[in-house]
Design a protein around this nucleic acid. Sequence first.
DNA 1: AAGGATTGTCATTTG
DNA 2: GACAAATGACAATCC
Length: 569
Amino acid sequence: MEESGVLRSEQEISLIDILWRQDIDLGVEREAFDVHFQERELDAQRARVQEEERKKRESELEERVMLALRKMDKETGEILPQNVQGDDSTSFNPGFELMTEAFLSGQGSPITQNPLLSALLLSEKPPPDKEKASIELLALPDLQHYLDALEAHVPESQPELLEKIMDNSYGHQLHEPPEDNTVLETVSGPHVLAHIHSGCAEIMETPEYAVSHSGKTTQPLPQIIPEAPEIEQPFLDTEDFTESFLDTIMSTNPPENLNQRSFQLSSDLNTQEELFPELENIIEPEHSLCQHVSVQKDSSGSTCDMTLFSLESFSEPIDLDPSLYADDAFITVQPEAEEVRRSQSDQIELFDLSVLSDVVDLQPSETSSQHLTQVGTLLHTDSLSVHSEDLFETEATTSSLCEITTSSQSPQGHRSWSVCRDEERARTLLLPLSVDDIITMSVDAFNEAISTYELNEGQLSLMRDIRRRGKNKMAAQSCRKRKLDSLVDLEAEVEELREERERVMLEKESNAKALRETRGKLSKLYSEVFSQLRDEHGNPYSTKEYTLQYSTDGRFFILPRSPHASKHT
DNA sequence: AAGGATTGTCATTTG
DNA sequence: GACAAATGACAATCC
């Protein structure tokens, strides 16, 4: 304990010395730091008492600082870059930006727990307006606490120094409060961080780091690490200090473990989706380093999600050592059912097609071959053992599959046998056109083809036979279909006529019944009228001798059944 | 094994 | 009259 305390004090003194060198241009006297150093221990004591309370507010502080440091497009939801140093918009890396956001969004994020990584990542976001942002940040409780402690030990005659310290500390230490509350660490600004960058950049510039850390970034990591701003040369040259300082900052994560550590991050979380949830929806596929392939089994419906990382986005050559890719960080298999693993061999075929379609869609250019090689190399190292040779057989596989599909359309196989026979003949005689083309092409095109190609008698005859048979085959099919349709239509017509006949018969019967009823009524009326008729003597007429008849003009007559017995009414 | 259904092919007819 | 399409007839194949 004492040794570490002494060591830390020495390191702090070194830091004060360096900060003093940096600020000497501002006219700050060395005594300011000395006075500060004498009372720093008291501040540390006071700060430890409040450490518990501070940790509770740590997440809130981090969140507010993040809000202050970034702006989010309200329409698109995209995080807008705020690169103050740089107007270099081309250096902005959305993938890395989002990755950073994703890392830092969680309370227990490994990045936030790692001071070095946190400083590295957050140093990308200096405020656009330092003065305004400083005022905003002063309202934050933790910052106010630091500044109160600082102000208590800084002579009132040096407000410029306080401002300077605030500017330097802004946006870096606020995200990750120091392990102890020494002002020394609080004032570690871009100068210190730049040194960290320079040290870590060397680590990250190795291909192994770039590949292993690549996750979903779209650029090699060395481009992500920003240039160190205004690095003082003496500072950078002090390698001993660098080492000790890094040890102090990253006591739990020494620089040599950075690669392993960053690799561990993705392995711990197991999936890239957990690491970069936003990335999947924002980065366009053609710019994305990863391809997500979902393999689904027809029978069980279970799926196997795979994330394939394309190497096309690397602007620099990368060592394709298979040992680097044989980790889950590169090809992550997430079976949703245990059967998926057991039936991997069945899925390989489906997987091939998915990969091929994705690859073809993504890379229609001449680089697709290289892309296939790289993807094939990646897949070859995976436990699924997808061979890269298969990836090159896109056309052959597709055509054979089409052939299988075509053949399977005929349940009885007769047509496929016929087609295969003509195709075999065409192959034997080396016909310049496919059977399908010979059959389906127009008459003019066929004649032109015959005249264009120099064909011998056998080829010419075969082409005509193929076309004739094919045409006749289609004609026979359509004819049979028409006949069948005609039969169906005739059957429907017969049924319709049968129904009409039934309807007419019913109507006829109904009409006959109505006629009988009318005749009955008429007979009854006739009898009633005839019975009321009387002759000049008041005697009724005999129905045997007379008959009652009426004309169309409404008059009616009593006529004798014999001609001489008629009498007009 | 017989028979129905389907399809391809040839010969002939039709437009 | 030539030609493509339509159709009848027959054979091969499958169920």
